[in-house]
Deep mutational scan, measured.
Amino acid sequence: LVRYRTISKIPQITLNFVDLKGDPFLASPTSDREIIAPKIKERTHNVTEKVTQVLSLGADVLPEYKLQAPRIHRWTILHYSPFKAVWDWLILLLVIYTAVFTPYSAAFLLKETEEGPPATECGYACQPLAVVDLIVDIMFIVDILINFRTTYVNANEEVVSHPGRIAVHYFKGWFLIDMVAAIPFDLLIFGSGSEELIGLLKTARLLRLVRVARKLDRYSEYGAAVLFLLMCTFALIAHWLACIWYAIGNMEQPHMDSRIGWLHNLGDQIGKPYNSSGLGGPSIKDKYVTALYFTFSSLTSVGFGNVSPNTNSEKIFSICVMLIGSLMYASIFGNVSAIIQRLYSGTARYHTQMLRVREFIRFHQIPNPLRQRLEEYFQHAWSYTNGIDMNAVLKGFPECLQADICLHLNRSLLQHCKPFRGATKGCLRALAMKFKTTHAPPGDTLVHAGDLLTALYFISRGSIEILRGDVVVAILGKNDIFGEPLNLYARPGKSNGDVRALTYCDLHKIHR
Rank of each mutant, 00 (worst) to 15 (best):
140 F>N: 01
306 N>W: 01
230 L>P: 03
112 E>C: 04
414 L>F: 14
438 T>F: 12
80 Y>N: 14
368 N>W: 06
390 M>A: 05
168 V>D: 06
349 R>I: 07
86 V>L: 15
278 G>I: 01
187 L>W: 09
203 T>C: 14
298 S>E: 01
177 I>M: 04
377 Y>H: 07
110 L>G: 13
301 S>N: 04
81 S>W: 07
192 S>T: 08
350 Y>V: 03
73 H>S: 07
75 W>N: 04
211 R>D: 08
288 Y>H: 01
134 L>H: 05
304 F>Y: 14
227 L>H: 01
182 A>V: 10
437 T>H: 11
193 G>T: 13
378 F>Y: 11
165 R>D: 11
120 T>K: 12
363 F>T: 13
190 F>Y: 13
167 A>M: 08
365 Q>R: 11
193 G>A: 06
93 L>D: 01
221 E>D: 09
96 I>D: 01
331 S>P: 03
191 G>N: 07
416 H>T: 10
312 N>V: 03
127 Q>A: 02
358 R>L: 03
355 L>A: 13
162 H>F: 08
287 K>D: 01
325 G>A: 08
213 A>R: 10
159 V>L: 05
268 D>V: 14
208 R>T: 10
143 D>M: 01
430 A>C: 04
175 F>R: 01
83 F>Y: 15
394 L>H: 03
434 K>D: 01
126 C>E: 01
382 W>Y: 15
180 V>R: 01
440 A>M: 15
386 N>Q: 14
359 E>F: 02
127 Q>W: 01
70 P>Q: 03
242 A>W: 01
67 L>C: 03
187 L>D: 12
419 P>H: 12
92 L>V: 05
398 P>F: 01
234 F>W: 08
195 E>G: 14
92 L>R: 02
372 Q>A: 04
448 H>P: 01
442 P>F: 01
302 V>Q: 03
400 C>R: 07
358 R>G: 03
69 A>K: 14
351 H>D: 03
291 A>T: 01
300 T>Y: 05
347 T>I: 04
433 M>T: 09
376 E>V: 07
105 S>I: 04
90 L>G: 07
341 Q>C: 05
405 I>G: 02
397 F>G: 03
226 V>Q: 13
103 P>K: 01
73 H>G: 14
159 V>D: 01
77 I>Q: 01
127 Q>I: 01
216 L>G: 04
394 L>Y: 05
297 S>A: 03
323 L>E: 01
390 M>Q: 09
141 I>H: 04
137 D>S: 05
103 P>W: 01
233 T>H: 01
394 L>F: 13
259 R>K: 15
310 N>Q: 04
415 Q>V: 08
292 L>P: 01
162 H>E: 09
199 G>W: 01
217 D>I: 06
239 H>C: 01
327 L>W: 04
64 E>Q: 15
329 Y>K: 13
72 I>A: 14
146 I>T: 04
